[in-house]
Simulated scan of single mutants.
Amino acid sequence: MHEMTSADLKSSVRHLWELCFRDTPEFIDLYFRLRYRDALNEAILRDGQVVSALQLIPYELQTWGARLPLAYLSGVCTHPQARRQGLMRRLLRQTHRRLYAEGCPVSSLIPAEPWLFDCYATSGYAPLFVYDWRRLSIAPGDDTVTVSEYREDSRDVYAYFSRKMAERPCCVLHSEEDFGVVLADLYLSEGSLWVARRDGTVTGLAFCVPTPDVCRIGECLADTPAVARTLVNRACEHTFMQETECLHPVAPDEAGRPLGMLRIIRVADVLALHARTHPDTEACWRISDPDIPENNVCVRLSQGTATPAAPDEGIPTGIGELAARLWSDERPYMSLMLN
């Protein structure tokens, strides 16, 4: 990538994006103005042009009572004329090696098409992030709160948003900078952020986008169900609709819909944290990772520790299977990801 200037690199990545995705010019402008950075870019060049690329957007994954740095692979694409040549597999491999060197423990992505779930599974990703939509109609709410549309930079709104997201046991968290990007995308879609307050204190938020048939709430956070109902009512009134469709986490006994995939980048770090936070776990896994040789280890989890074990003692476990073993019961959740 050193052969290109920064401006040329950005222009080439943008051109590739325009070829591969059906996004509006307005959204692409927003993405390359607020999200794109050369330092976050990972690409393969051919004849001076980018033929495969992605962006590594930094997030945190709250899990097991801790916060793990997480790299979200955004805009993963390959030039139409360069497909079926192994470039995407090569790009992901070099991305995983880079993330390992940078000390990032986990990565995630959202497949753009259903068939890509199987494709990314071959690179070690497990389909762990799930969600569902809940239909909600106008119903009595909480008369003690007032609801207004978010218009100005208000630190108490982000503080509330951050705190409520962090109350979820396994969830991708948004930084304050990313919160600004989320709002910019919301407004681009002619959406609104509704804020519920009681005596000036924030008690609920709803990120709403109108569609021809229903008002969609991409995230609703509230102190009580009654406050959430009041936010739903306001969204319905604003869009002249009788019901909303609200994105929500999935309970352990619910099937849910697949959304995002998770990959372990640094096995030793992840297993050490899991062992500390799950001291009752007794297991021994012989892990295989085709992309990161350092992850090809045999590890025993016992009494809160993760220690090396003899290879013949461990159950053969692929890197994607390991992620599924560790997180399937956690029901990881992500929202407002600009996917």
Rank of each mutant, 00 (worst) to 15 (best):
2 H>A: 13
6 S>C: 10
7 A>L: 08
9 L>W: 00
10 K>A: 11
13 V>T: 11
14 R>Q: 14
17 W>Q: 12
23 D>L: 07
25 P>K: 07
29 D>C: 07
33 R>D: 13
34 L>Q: 15
38 D>L: 04
44 I>P: 03
45 L>P: 10
47 D>V: 11
53 A>Y: 02
53 A>K: 02
56 L>T: 06
58 P>S: 08
61 L>C: 05
71 A>M: 08
72 Y>A: 12
76 V>P: 00
76 V>R: 02
84 R>P: 09
85 Q>E: 15
87 L>P: 05
92 L>F: 03
94 Q>W: 05
96 H>P: 00
99 L>T: 03
100 Y>E: 09
102 E>H: 09
102 E>V: 05
102 E>W: 03
102 E>L: 10
105 P>Y: 00
108 S>G: 12
111 P>Q: 07
112 A>L: 14
119 C>D: 09
123 S>N: 14
126 A>M: 10
135 R>P: 02
136 L>I: 11
138 I>R: 15
144 T>Q: 15
147 V>S: 01
154 S>W: 03
157 V>C: 03
167 E>W: 07
173 L>V: 13
177 E>H: 10
177 E>Y: 05
180 G>Y: 00
180 G>P: 01
186 L>V: 10
191 G>L: 01
195 V>Q: 00
197 R>L: 10
198 R>T: 06
200 G>P: 06
203 T>H: 09
207 F>K: 09
210 P>C: 08
214 V>Y: 11
216 R>A: 09
218 G>V: 05
218 G>E: 10
222 A>N: 06
222 A>Y: 02
224 T>W: 01
228 A>N: 07
229 R>T: 15
230 T>V: 05
232 V>E: 08
232 V>K: 03
235 A>Q: 05
240 F>L: 08
244 T>N: 06
245 E>C: 04
247 L>E: 08
254 E>G: 07
254 E>D: 11
255 A>C: 08
262 L>D: 03
263 R>H: 05
263 R>K: 11
267 V>S: 03
269 D>K: 10
272 A>Q: 13
273 L>R: 14
283 A>S: 13
286 R>P: 02
286 R>E: 07
295 N>V: 04
296 N>F: 00
296 N>R: 14
299 V>S: 01
300 R>E: 12
301 L>E: 04
302 S>E: 07
303 Q>L: 11
305 T>E: 11
307 T>Y: 00
311 P>C: 07
313 E>Q: 14
313 E>G: 09
314 G>N: 05
315 I>N: 06
337 M>D: 01
